[in-house]
């Protein structure tokens, strides 16, 4: 039984050795963004816009998209507010989009901390270039799922 006594004592050494084995890193899943797909009203098919500029209202010096050619938009929401307002410039025509939502903090991991999830309640927009915006999925999370469908 000397072996048992020895092992009962030596475990302290193992604890000290293994205390340095655990490493923590943040494998961040990414920010929850409202995913908007772009469609043509005429044929109800997806489209790609050649020159799209988007920025937050009052944030025109910080562009989210800058004359980008894209068929899908990902918009950051503001966790400090219950709505976010954007200016969407398609060619030279300006529209505004307001997304109203509730924000919920979400614990990711010890290393990453918290992120936010959102539930879209409503959208309102001008119709200068935009025809219709539909809410497809009101749950905004780090996945790439479509939330809004915009018809031009």
């Amino acid at each position: 039984m000397r072996g048992i006594r020895l092992s009962a004592g030596l475990i302290i050494v193992l604890i000290a050795v293994c205390s340095g084995c655990i490493t923590e890193s943040c494998d961040h899943p990414g920010e929850s963004m409202a995913v908007i797909t772009l469609y043509e009203t005429d044929n109800n098919e997806t489209t790609v816009i050649d020159s799209l500029t988007i920025y937050g209202v009052g944030m025109d010096d910080l562009l989210i998209y800058d004359n980008s050619k894209t068929g899908k938009i990902e918009l950051p929401l503001n966790p400090a507010s219950d709505c976010a307002d954007y200016v969407i410039v398609n060619g030279l025509i300006h529209d505004t989009l307001k997304i109203t939502y509730t924000a919920t903090h979400h614990f990711i991991s010890k290393a990453c901390g918290y992120s936010f999830l959102y539930t879209i309640g409503n959208v309102s927009y001008t119709k200068n270039r935009i025809d219709t915006i539909l809410i497809i999925n009101n749950s905004v999370n780090p996945s790439d799922e479509e939330n809004l469908r915009t018809f031009f």
Partner: peptide, 17 residues
């Protein structure tokens, strides 16, 4: 959670749980 900060396009968020 006595302090929680989060930063994105809209700036820095400060909150608590």
């Amino acid at each position: 959670t006595s302090s929680l900060t989060y930063e994105n396009y809209w700036g820095e968020y400060y909150g608590t749980i």
